[in-house]
Nucleic acid binder design. Structure first.
Lengths: 165, 165
DNA sequence: GTGCCTGCAAAAAATTTGCAACAAC
DNA sequence: GTTGTTGCAAATTTTTTGCAGGCAC
């Protein structure tokens, strides 16, 4: 599946044990004079269990299965907290909703989005990253971060279209 | 400034004369059984005169200097129309507002966004495009479109930071 | 006990929509 | 005259905020 510098999805987690997302959150909370709460635990638990690219709406639904009294506002506030401590990354894939993605220990990557079924595949490619830095430098920029999204049709959607044209 | 396949901004408009944006809009309107109107004219006129990456809010302000009675809804509807006929491209650069960019006859390009001063520079790089297609194919995708945004600091902001650290 | 956190409901911000009047063809 | 378009205001959608009470430390 992978030919050259393409890391594909799922990234390697080999090597020294990293703090779990939950632990990292606790650390951040302690270091910043914030407080630990049942709601934050539940929301983080649900978020990391879901994986993928989660909208607040979806997350609320899931969290409420654990604890129906948790409010939307708290979910928004907690996701902002997770974003602040680098455990979640907010993404705007269109559709007007912010989606969050777990970032715990995973390296940088970009996205392939199927315009047919909505499937989102992650990938990383170093050559592209290198070229980006080069182009930026040419324009006098120093890149801090970037966003690359490829929209297209996945294998399944393409064969489906050929089958029923 | 340009070394290899980097087109820089501004793109070349040499060659056979292309229809002006206004003409293209009229053609689209005629072909689709739609109707021409004073409001559409004014909105398109203002939009193409502004250039750059315009928010609906900014556009409304400008359009109302030409014609104070034009409603926000009409501006939204017209921008959707311009997007449908390919004369404008909607962009989400963050900040929750959609910005539109004139696309008339200009080739595809991506964006460099300065996190210091907000400046937006356009660029195009064929090598990156080629690699994108390659990576996508590896994952079984056929790319239809993409979005690449590089966030960083422009020369000016970098020197400013060094001057006052 | 102090100060952060939560739930609720109201507020905001961006965009869409229903509808009657209106304009283009 | 028919049909698409406009303006207005109300509605939607997503996210934020004020505030009183609650919980963590």
């Amino acid at each position: 599946m992978n030919e050259t510098s393409d890391r594909g999805r799922g990234g390697g987690r080999g090597g020294a044990r990293e703090a779990s997302p939950t632990e990292a959150l606790c650390a951040y909370i302690a270091e910043n004079g914030l407080k630990h709460s049942r709601q934050r635990d539940r929301i983080a638990e649900a978020f990391f269990a879901m994986g993928g690219h989660v909208s607040v709406e979806e997350l609320v639904a899931r969290v409420r299965r654990l604890d129906p009294r948790i409010s939307v506002a708290t979910v928004y506030r907690t996701m902002k907290l997770l974003a602040d401590c680098g455990l979640a990354v907010p993404r705007q894939f269109g559709g007007g909703q912010t989606r969050y993605e777990a970032a715990a220990g995973r390296g940088h990557h970009d996205h392939l989005i199927c315009t047919g079924c909505g499937e989102i595949v992650e990938f990383a490619n170093e050559k592209i990253e290198t070229l980006q830095a080069l182009v930026a430098r040419r324009h006098g920029f120093e890149v801090e971060s970037h966003k690359l999204e490829l929209y297209g049709r996945c294998v399944r959607c393409r064969s489906a279209r050929e089958a029923t044209p």
